[in-house]
Structure formats: C-alpha cells, structure tokens
Amino acid sequence: MKFHGTAHKYGRDIDTDVIIPARYLNTSVPEELAKHCMEDLDPEFVSKIEFGDILVAEENFGCGSSREHAPIAIKSAGVSVVIAKSFARIFYRNAINTGLPIMESPEAVEGISDGDEVEVDADAGTIVNVTRGETYRAQPFPPFVKEIIEKGGLIEAIKEKVSTR
C-alpha cells in the first residue's frame, strides 16, 4: 500500500471526542460522520483535507472511547493514512479492523511539518518527506496483524472460521 499527500499535523492525546463528537453518534453513516471529523479541534479540517492527504499527530492518538465511528470518520473524510508517535490501543485495533492504515513512527512525526508533501510505503515501512528530502522508518505491524490487513480487515479474516462452524 502506497500513499501520497499533504500532511496535516496535530498535537498529542487527540481523543475520539474531538475526532467525532458524541453529539453525532446517533448515526453510523460514514458520509455523515465525515462531515464532522475533528470539528471541535479544527473547524477547517474537513474543508482542508484533499482525498489522500495524511494525518500526522504526536503521542496517544485516538485516546478515549471505543467508538469505531472515529476511524470511520477519518477514512471517510479522505485521509489515506494516520502517522503518530503512538496510538491508543482501542483506536489501534479499530483502525486495523476497519481498514484505516496507521503507522507508528516518532521520527517521522518529528520530521514532518504541517503542509509537507509526504509519501508512504506501508509495506516497506518507509515514510518519505518529499518537501524536506528525508526518509523515516515506521514500526512494522506484527505478522498476525499484517495477516488481518492483507485479508482486508477482521471480518474478511474470520469469514472462513464462521463458515466452518
């Protein structure tokens, strides 16, 4: 998987309540959720994002609630991949399960500034900052997790198990 876009950079502890406020959780329609993505943190977010852009954040991205509406909103808003120094654990699982690519790379987050042009090769685990001519390494997924991603998400991965029951 390869991605290419403009980086939009935010701080640490970006919680699921600002990613998608609970006042919109009376729906699970991805397009509806996308309209309000990050609005309490940055009301301009949705209008700034071009399809394929890259969300960059410091530590503990996605902390708080278990709402899967959060990765769904980010993905539907057009973000191709989230790069952070670390992810909150429920968000980490939810992103994998719903097919939102995420990468853990403290050095990339240090090196990337808001507005930089960035290229990501998720399989190779490399992040290239085109604007600055720098390359960073990301943590590879554990093989078990990679298998889920390769099968197209958790539901696809367990279909076989369900059909043999």
Partner: peptide
C-alpha cells in the same frame, strides 16, 4: 477490555478474539 464494534461483531460470531 473495551474494543470497537468490529471486534465485538467477530466476538459475537465466533466466541473468540485475539489479544496481545
């Protein structure tokens, strides 16, 4: 432990889940 809806769906279907 808390999980997302998809993990819960898989749990409801299989009675199992993965953990680190």
């Amino acid at each position: 432990t808390g999980v997302g809806s998809t993990d819960a769906a898989a749990g409801m279907a299989t009675g199992e889940t993965w953990f680190k």
